[in-house]
Simulated scan of single mutants.
Amino acid sequence: MTHTAVVAWSGLLLGLLFGVAGRLSGFCLMRGLANAWAADPSQRDQRKLRAFALAMVVALLGSQVLVSLTPLSLNDALYRTASLSWLLVPLGGALFGYGMVMANGCGARSLVLLGSGNLRSFVVLVCLGIAAYMTLSGVLAPLRVWLEGATTLTLPARDLPGWLMQAGLGATLARWLPSLLLAGGLLTWALSSATFRASPRDWLGGLVIGALIPSGWYATGVLGFDDFEPVRLASLTFIAPIGESLQYLMLSTGTRLGFGVTVVAGVLAGSLITSLASRGFTWQGFPDHTRILRSMGGGALMGIGGVLALGCSIGQGLSGVSTLALTSFVAVAGIAGGAGLGIRGPLALSKV
């Protein structure tokens, strides 16, 4: 089996595990933020948000351990850029965050819901994939490129360790100091809730999904390493891969399955298998035209915003943060801000 085939099969396996864990645990950043920021204090529930924080801890520490034990370098990851658009990255994050509230879930969650028979998610995913490719290489690409050129700043370093090394710290200390401080803070907050600790559905979901991030780096960066035909270093992310999956369905002849496409297929299959096995598969449609428009608009905003921000709530929030890339923290702040506008802000969708 070639190294590219190994990577493709690895992506399918990781996607299956994500689909199963996502279906059983209800893992979702949007749901976590919505529950935590509910207007009625008596209805607030932070378990899903704490599960996401736990996943960040596992993704971050697992990725750094992987770098320590293997020749893998995360410098080739998409998120570790030498420059940053001060406009597009936070704006893209905000568009994505608002869009996932409109669509009632991010791209990954929409795949999981589609596997359980939710046809609203099908509309979200199609609009997301089309909008993403319009922004990557379609009619919106020239505007994106022009705005990037007009608003790009050179960063002092690609990541937090690089920044600390410039301040005089050694490479090992510069990498582990921010990793342990960030992971320790998130872990302390996540486990400080007795309700969360008593909910194995949530903390197990966070543990499993967090562990998939270093597994993705290992699959593409170690198993996929080849001097003559290198595989692009990547882990779990869902904006461009959903667009690539739609493209593959239409133009598969003469093309080869990539890691992102097999992850998407695996998530859908894992959720479907779990839904059928638990007898939880039910067809769900739209109650009215308003919900259709919200799903279409939410998917489009996530596609555009995810490209501008270089990732989604999983891509930047877990994979990106696991590399300690500076752009990831800016994008995650934008995603949280956009979601806040949709949940409780002046543009809250409950007021529309």
Rank of each mutant, 00 (worst) to 15 (best):
residue 147 L to G: 05
residue 150 A to I: 12
residue 168 G to C: 10
residue 18 F to A: 03
residue 146 W to S: 11
residue 258 G to A: 09
residue 184 G to H: 11
residue 231 V to P: 01
residue 132 A to N: 06
residue 77 A to V: 05
residue 214 P to V: 06
residue 87 L to W: 13
residue 209 I to M: 13
residue 24 L to I: 10
residue 76 D to A: 11
residue 175 R to L: 11
residue 261 V to L: 12
residue 3 H to N: 13
residue 142 P to T: 08
residue 95 L to M: 15
residue 350 S to P: 00
residue 287 P to N: 12
residue 280 G to Y: 07
residue 260 G to S: 11
residue 199 S to I: 00
residue 166 Q to K: 15
residue 210 G to P: 03
residue 221 G to W: 00
residue 97 G to W: 00
residue 94 A to L: 15
residue 238 F to I: 09
residue 18 F to L: 11
residue 80 R to F: 10
residue 293 L to H: 10
residue 320 G to F: 09
residue 150 A to N: 10
residue 286 F to K: 11
residue 256 R to F: 11
residue 270 G to R: 03
residue 220 T to G: 06
residue 27 F to N: 02
residue 26 G to V: 03
residue 201 R to C: 04
residue 139 V to L: 13
residue 231 V to A: 12
residue 215 S to A: 15
residue 95 L to Y: 03
residue 293 L to V: 14
residue 118 N to K: 03
residue 142 P to N: 09
residue 317 G to K: 03
residue 126 V to P: 02
residue 49 L to R: 02
residue 176 W to Q: 02
residue 168 G to Y: 15
residue 169 L to Q: 07
residue 147 L to H: 06
residue 160 L to A: 08
residue 168 G to P: 12
residue 123 V to Q: 00
residue 138 G to H: 08
residue 179 S to T: 14
residue 289 H to K: 09
residue 247 Q to D: 14
residue 249 L to I: 13
residue 35 N to P: 00
residue 131 A to Y: 02
residue 50 R to W: 09
residue 338 G to S: 10
residue 320 G to W: 06
